[in-house]
Design a protein around this nucleic acid. Structure first.
Lengths: 121, 121
DNA sequence: CATGGCACATACTTTAGGGTAAGTACTTGT
DNA sequence: ACAAGTACTTACCCTAAAGTATGTGCCATG
């Protein structure tokens, strides 16, 4: 289902990468420009939409929501909306999102080492 | 140098992400479609160009070389060319590249868990 | 009465990255 | 003479993702 355009080799290739490479699978889910940053901010606890927005001023609203929706679809975060007069929406990490944290921090650790040339730059 | 177009907000945003997020930094380096796969194949030991090519038939030569050059530039792999009659080029992981392996496998582990719904899909 | 905050949506544009196809220089095998 | 292998390069195309700009409904406040 969710039909992929048949006449597109690029899609086949993507599919191949997804099938053969779990890392590519993971990247699909955290590979947005801002997704790791969002995830990081949520790792500190629940946040409402406007808090996230203020925490990451460089991202546009469109992209932020786009990513939040995607992360929700991917089951990494959970959206809770209270149907009150001024909208009140909170986002928090799901189990899968929490399970991603070690990965994120492993990457971060590596990045810091690499940045300071610990691998012999 | 390698001047970034000044009048481009997208570049500023990328820069911001790179500065504030080590994960984004790491993704820059392993975020190509085939980079993790290449890295994985090299983790099994040195390989020559044509071996890699045969190991990953789905990737085109252009992209493969593109990624190899990039990985070399980023210091993740080391290229050794013997100036012999038929070219003989081998690629292998650098220290930084090896240091990335735990990260890769952490991602893979998470991906497998997530795929089988271990987080409560 | 209009301005601003909240949580979005929508239309349009741009760019980086991946894909296709073809060519290069040199040599060995038939 | 010609195909085939090795390691690339180059020119051009197409798409997905990020960006820009603007609008929406609702309410409170100045």
């Amino acid at each position: 289902m969710t039909a992929i355009k048949e006449n597109s080799t690029i899609q086949e290739n993507k599919q191949y990468a997804l099938d053969t490479c779990p890392v590519t699978y993971a990247m699909q889910k955290i590979g947005g420009y801002w997704k790791p940053i969002i995830l990081y901010h949520l790792s500190g606890g629940d946040k409402r939409y406007s808090e996230i927005k203020r925490a990451i001023p460089a991202v546009t609203e469109k992209v932020l929501i786009q990513h939040l929706k995607q992360l929700e679809l991917d089951g990494l975060i959970i959206r809770e909306a209270k149907p009150v007069v001024p909208p009140f929406v909170t986002y928090r990490l799901s189990a899968a999102g929490t399970g991603l944290m070690p990965v994120i921090s492993a990457m971060a650790t590596w990045a810091f080492k690499d940045m300071e040339g610990a691998f012999g730059a």
